[in-house]
Amino acid sequence: MSSAVNASFEPVIGRYLNLDLLGKRHRVYVEEAGQGIPLLCLHTAGSDTRQFRAILNNADITKNYRVIAFDLPWHGKSSPPAGWRDLEEYRLTSRDYVDIIMGVSEALQLDKPVAMGCSIGGRIVLHLALEHPDHFGAVIGLQAGAHVDPYYDTQWLHRPDVHGGEVCAGVVSGLIGPSATEENRWETLWHYMQGGPGVFKGDLYFYKIDGDIRERIAAIDTTRCPVYLLSGEYDYSCSPQDTLDAASRIKGAQVTIMQGMGHFPMSEDPTGFIDHLAPVLEEILKMRKGR
């Protein structure tokens, strides 16, 4: 039998967007599928857009949503800007992270996009809801909390005598919940194994230090920008309690705790995750129609 019998393209289109971000020229890799409300997906620290492969391929979602995911600069197929070798180290700050997302959203001319991010992405959507409530139609924070205290020495993630891919994936491997299949577990970890030197560590600077939003989180106005938080019960980085604590301080925020899942719901257990995401997307769709 010819191998062509089982060959097919996914409906996902990947392209490179050339634009200025943070005062430098960037070549950012963007994937998208579907039509309708823009759903801008933000991957976790040290990973890339492949985490959203199931969302981009879900026909029930893409019939009403234009699902867009991009690799942050330094991640996946978005190389660092020219001159990166002169930097002492890569560090993601809250300011830069917000500017990158706004830059991409404006370059794509998205109309009231829904921002959905996981982990660092789950944290930054809280910053977006606070600082740009009228730009976004809603935010969905996966594994989102206001702050995470450092609990291990991140120096181990970037030193020449420890393999970066092995240690980054090794550090996060336990964050995956028992509902993940072996295939999705190791797909998720492979993304971590492919991260560039120091990139995961640089993202964690935002996650554990610079991105702390505890002092400001209560000022989020969900009447201007609705907030949905979904977290997996096995995550010990951003634990369900961390998410519940954040939600309790955002008036009007809606929370779902997802049984059996960990820190990477969309990638480790796409089917189970979409069951929880679907009612949220349905609600946003209804709100938009009544707009």
Partner: peptide, 28 residues
């Protein structure tokens, strides 16, 4: 949850990793 990995125990401050942890981290 909370017991599902060595790092879950470390995160909850119930496990202490001490000494020269290079071999441990390099072969996690």
């Amino acid at each position: 949850p909370g017991f599902n990995d060595i790092f879950a125990l470390i995160r909850r401050r119930v496990l202490r990793l001490e000494g020269d942890m290079h071999p441990f981290m390099a072969n996690l």
